[in-house]
């Protein structure tokens, strides 16, 4: 495999990791706040807190990893996206900052505050929306290169139906992924009440997720027909994604094997995400940046790959330990930590 392909695969995988783990986090924040409003917090908040507290910091790292890696492998992307995304990127950063710090204020501070919970819950919905615009921009048509430099057409982004369909997909999938994971987690904790509530959330959000996916297909066929055609060439991946969706919903509907159901949710998104990404190649930013043009130095590329492997050798056992202690430890999940 060529270096640029290794690079983008690694990065895409990290982005996928972020997609799953951050969705759980963002959705959980929203459900936390929503349950506070509807006076159901006593049912699910314990479950959410017990999962989130030890892992919230790890979530953030996935994102940092992705953009540091992207700039490292493909420095041209920093130039184009960096110049263009000052405002949307700045807003996303602002939201991430509020969310990250208010999580700690709300959960490690002296008492729970409604305002902190509100900010934490609400930003959780805006962040995926603002981050997903980067994917939209990568399709081309929003950034223009002129003699004066790079120009970003924010107005086009705001009026594009494609852009809104992506935002819609980001929002509903966050809620769907999060609810299906938390259902599984509540089931492990043998907390039937929480499980039932979260299960209805998961089923409720499954419909809009598929609807939004169709909208995105339609949007992309109009916005970037070339990309749409290469997606059709690997259409089996999107069919596989849909089948996984059916299996996951079926299992949840029948209240069976919530763990397996969640794995199918992950497969559903993996097929769609990798299919979308693969069809997007070789462009990182249509039509200015391709993976070949952006990769400028192979010595550094290989150094990054080696660092990446070494890092994984360190991370995988540590992540395993973290999961052993907090996710797959029946006593901890049930709240009997001693």
């Amino acid at each position: 495999m060529s270096l640029e392909l290794i690079g983008i695969t690694v990065l895409w995988t990290f982005l996928f990791g972020y997609l799953i783990i951050a969705s759980i986090d963002f959705g959980a924040g929203f459900f936390s706040y929503y349950s506070m409003l509807t006076q159901k917090e006593h049912i699910i908040n314990q479950i959410i807190d017990r999962y989130l507290s030890p892992v919230w910091e790890v979530t953030n790292v996935f994102l940092v990893f992705f953009f540091v890696g992207l700039v490292g492998f493909f420095p041209d992307t920093a130039y184009y996206y960096g110049t263009a995304l000052l405002i949307p990127g700045g807003v996303a950063l602002l939201l991430l900052s509020i969310r990250g710090s208010f999580y700690a204020f709300a959960n490690y501070g002296a008492r729970k505050s409604r305002i902190y919970m509100f900010l934490y819950g609400l930003t959780g919905l805006f962040i995926p929306a603002s981050l997903s615009t980067v994917l939209t921009i990568s399709e081309g048509g929003f950034i223009e290169k002129t003699n004066q430099g790079i120009h970003f057409h924010a107005d086009r982004l705001f009026t594009s139906p494609y852009s809104w369909s992506v935002v819609f997909l980001a929002l509903v999938s966050v809620l769907y992924i999060s609810a299906s994971f938390l259902t599984y987690y509540a089931d492990k904790a043998q907390d039937t009440k929480a499980r039932e509530l979260l299960r209805t959330y998961a089923l409720w959000w499954s419909g809009p997720t598929i609807l939004a996916s169709l909208l995105v297909f339609w949007g992309i066929s109009r916005h970037n027909p070339a990309h749409f055609h290469s997606m059709l060439n690997i259409s089996w991946m999107f069919v596989a994604s849909f089948l996984c969706f059916l299996v996951a919903v079926f299992l949840m509907w029948k209240k069976r094997a919530f763990g397996v159901a969640f794995i199918f949710v992950m497969f559903q998104f993996a097929f769609a995400f990798y299919g979308y990404g693969y069809a997007h190649l070789p462009y990182l930013l249509y039509p200015y940046v391709t993976i070949q043009s952006a990769l400028t130095n192979s010595t550094m590329g290989w150094a990054l790959v080696i660092a990446f492997i070494a890092g994984l050798l360190l991370l995988i056992p540590s992540l395993y330990l973290l999961m052993r202690l907090f996710l797959f430890n029946a006593k901890y999940v049930r709240g009997q930590s001693k």
Partner: peptide, 23 residues
């Protein structure tokens, strides 16, 4: 990018064990 990348790894490592240490 190499030191930036490594810094993120170190930070990752810290984040994981801080979670463990706290709980």
């Amino acid at each position: 990018s190499l030191p930036l990348f490594l810094e993120t790894f170190a930070f990752f490592f810290e984040a994981i064990f801080l979670g463990i240490y706290l709980y």
